[in-house]
């Protein structure tokens, strides 16, 4: 069965507040991808999902990091689909581990892949294909526990190749450097799998550092045209503690601090109450965090 051309599912970009974007585009039970590969991680949008108390989400991400730890520990997540879940360079995601190992705050379903498989799944979704194909997974134990990894014979050479189903998120959320007033979105640096994740999704939310009159994007710059994105929201610093190249650096010290904040349930819960649930938006979160 062939799906709709993906653009038929979208409206044209509209510039809104982040709170409105999450309210209108993320629903309980949705399949949500908040993508970003160490760079441009949509933290502010993740906070807002927690603030609005969304639940039963299936969350997809190649590298679930601290923002997924926050979502999981806050009870928003029913299932996680991922390929590397850690605090980069620091260690474990304690809330993810607590959910997997001890069912806290609730049991979590796990669908686990390798990076190349996840990349192929997004690329297949963007291309409106039913599955992605790659030379991977052969001889590894992931194939024993994930029945969505299959093997096929190449019809031309007979080579055994892995097949993985396309990702088709209900909504993809990303952060980028800039958008113009029409909603064209531009990003650069480590761009990860965000373009594919947006094109694979039914809806999308893009937070940006700034909205400008003219992107002044050179040809070949990564630009998502306004007619393939949904909500565009200006949230300055919205990728903190990750980084936005050209705007601010990765706050490695916060990633290290997260290890202590998230280690036990009470400290985590109190931190989330104070910094996320009791603040009205990302700007207030930053003020509380900085003790202002």
């Amino acid at each position: 069965m062939i799906g709709f051309p993906s653009w038929q599912n979208r409206g044209l970009a509209h510039i809104t507040t982040l709170s409105q974007a999450i309210r209108e585009s993320v629903h309980d039970g949705d399949v949500v991808a908040l993508e970003g590969f160490t760079h441009l991680i949509p933290y502010a949008a993740g906070h807002e999902i927690v603030r609005q108390g969304k639940k039963d989400l299936t969350v997809i991400r190649m590298t679930p990091d601290v923002i997924y730890d926050m979502l999981i520990g806050s009870g928003c997540v029913k299932k996680i689909v991922f390929s590397w879940g850690g605090n980069p360079g620091v260690g474990s995601l304690h809330r993810l581990r607590d959910a997997v190992e001890k069912d806290w705050p609730k049991p979590i379903e796990v669908e686990e892949h390798a990076h190349a498989g996840m990349a192929a799944m997004y690329a297949a979704g963007a291309a409106n294909l039913p599955f992605g194909v790659l030379r991977g997974y052969i001889g590894t134990d992931l194939t024993k526990y994930n029945n969505r990894i299959k093997f096929i014979d190449c019809p031309f050479t007979g080579e055994k190749l892995a097949a993985v189903p396309a990702h088709r998120p209900d909504v993809t959320v990303i952060h980028a450097q800039k958008a113009d007033r029409k909603g064209n979105v531009q990003m650069w640096g480590v761009v990860g799998v965000q373009k594919e994740a947006v094109l694979a999704a039914k809806r999308s939310i893009v937070t940006v550092e700034e909205i400008v009159d003219d992107l002044q994007a050179p040809p070949n710059a990564v630009v998502l045209p306004y007619w393939v994105v949904g909500h565009v929201c200006e949230v300055k610093g919205g990728a903190f503690p990750s980084y936005a190249q050209g705007y601010y650096a990765r706050n490695n010290a916060f990633y290290k601090r997260w290890d202590d904040i998230s280690k036990d349930r009470e400290t985590f819960t109190a931190w989330m109450e104070k910094h996320i649930k009791n603040t009205k938006d990302f700007a207030e979160f930053k003020r509380v965090l900085e003790g202002k």
């Binding site: 993810l96 190992e101 686990e112």
Partner: peptide
């Protein structure tokens, strides 16, 4: 239900 859940494969297997 592992005793210790590690980050996983990432790109290592490829």
């Amino acid at each position: 239900k592992p005793k210790v859940r590690l980050p996983g494969a990432g790109g290592a297997q490829e």
